[in-house]
Each structure stands twice: as C-alpha cells, then as structure tokens.
Simulated scan of single mutants.
Amino acid sequence: MHISHALATVALLSISGLATPTEAAPVEASTWHGGGEQGTYSNAIGWQFTALSDMTVTHLGVLDLDEPGLSDRHTIGLFNEAGDLLVSTSLGAGLSGDLYLGSMIYDAVGLTMLEQGETYYILADNWTQDRYGWGWDAVSYSDDVEWTNFSETTGPSIFDTVLHYYDGEPGTLGPGFLYQVAPSPGALALLGLAGCAARRRRRR
C-alpha cells in the first residue's frame, strides 16, 4: 500500500470513529480493589499526585462503598499545586452522577488539561457518613499518575487550608477522576498528513 493510501485510510477511520487517537476511552486515575482500611472523617480528604503524562480530565467522582448510592452530598475539586481550583462538581446523595465504574461514582466535568511533570491534588468533602479507603494493597494508580501524598483540609470544606502528608494514609481513595491521555505530537502530525493525503486524492 502506498503511503498516501495508508494515511488516507487513517483519516477515514478517524472520521468514521473507528480509530480516534484523540478520543481514547477514559482511564481511571485510581482503582479500588477492596481490603485495606476504611474510615470516616469530618474534614475534606483526598490525595496529591504528579502527572506522568499530559492528560485531559473528563470526570470527577468519589468512592461508594457498602450499598449502592451515596449517603451524603459530596463536592469534589481538582487543584494545581498552588491551590488554584481547576475544576469541580458535586454529587448528590443516592445514585447521582453520570457514570458508575466499579466502586466509584463519577460526574462529567468540563475538559481540564493536566501537564506532564506538574503536581496536583484532588479533594472531596462530607466523609462523616460515606467511608473512604486507603492502603497500598487496596488502591492502585494508573501508569500516568504518581501518588505522592495523603491530603486533608483543616475544616469540612475543600476550600479550607490543605495539608499534605506522605506518611498519612498511603494509597488514599475518596475522590478520584477519569482522564484521557493527550495524543503525542507524532500522532497529531500523522493525522494532519492523513488529512492532506485525503484532500489530494479528492482533487485527482
């Protein structure tokens, strides 16, 4: 197959939705496997992490243990290292949210870019009834995320002063998020060449 035909095929598949490098299925940043320890807390809790890839956050969510459905309303926020809020959402009590995946309930949010090598943290409030979990055997993280610290606020709100502890509660999972990995520059260049090849073929 000539290279122009191959590139045109890639473009056609992208247009038809059969191959979409820029629209990969969302990935869970953290996954609950059961076990470990669970508890309740009066302050907002979460975890700090380093992004190991450029990624686009698509959903924020919280852990839902016990019977399906949350006991309380939760506000979830994703912040940069400086403490600036990047995106947030709220999940009501019961079976709210847009997506249920394993033991997590997620809500779609505006697409939010995270940059490789940068540090961020995620928090959620209202853990006096719903439980969160922790423990290295209980929680795993995706290849694009490096857990760095347990995070908690000094009060009940996600906007209260935040503290980060490496030796606090490792492998924390209360809030979590879904994301898509940003396509590499090479993949974007390939799609651009494919589009050019397809246009040249149409002119012939």
Rank of each mutant, 00 (worst) to 15 (best):
E118N: 12
G117I: 07
Y121I: 03
S142P: 09
L70N: 12
M104P: 00
L63K: 03
A197C: 10
A189N: 06
A189V: 11
A108H: 02
T20K: 04
Q129G: 07
L78A: 04
A138D: 11
S71K: 14
Q38P: 00
L95H: 04
H2C: 04
R204L: 10
D167M: 03
I45P: 00
D144M: 09
D125C: 04
R200Q: 15
N43Q: 06
I105R: 06
L178W: 00
A189K: 15
L91Q: 08
Y179W: 03
I158H: 04
D84G: 04
L60P: 09
F177Q: 00
D144H: 14
S140F: 05
L95C: 02
S30F: 05
N126D: 15
L12S: 08
L65M: 07
T22L: 11
S14H: 13
A138N: 04
L91V: 11
I76H: 04
F159Y: 15
A8H: 06
S157M: 12
T161K: 13
Y141E: 06
D160E: 12
Y120M: 01
D144K: 03
H5I: 09
A182Y: 02
D84A: 15
W134E: 01
T75N: 15
F177C: 01
A197S: 12
G168F: 03
F49E: 09
G174N: 06
V162R: 15
A93I: 05
G155C: 15
Y41I: 05
G117S: 04
D143C: 02
T56E: 15
Y121T: 00
S53R: 12
P156V: 14
L178Q: 12
R200P: 00
R203K: 10
L163V: 14
L85Y: 05
I122Y: 07
G61M: 01
V87K: 07
G94F: 06
L85K: 15
D160F: 05
S42I: 02
Y179S: 00
V181N: 07
G36T: 07
F79Y: 13
L86M: 14
R203P: 03
D66I: 10
I3G: 01
V10E: 11
L65T: 07
R202V: 11
Y166P: 02
T89V: 09
R202P: 01
R131I: 02
E115T: 10
L12V: 08
P26M: 09
W32L: 11
A29C: 11
L7I: 08
W32H: 14
S140Y: 08
L178H: 00
S30T: 14
G176L: 06
L91R: 09
G35P: 08
T50C: 02
V87Q: 10
G34L: 08
Y100L: 14
V10W: 06
R201Q: 14
A124N: 01
G195N: 07
E152H: 12
F159R: 13
L18P: 01
P156A: 15
A108S: 08
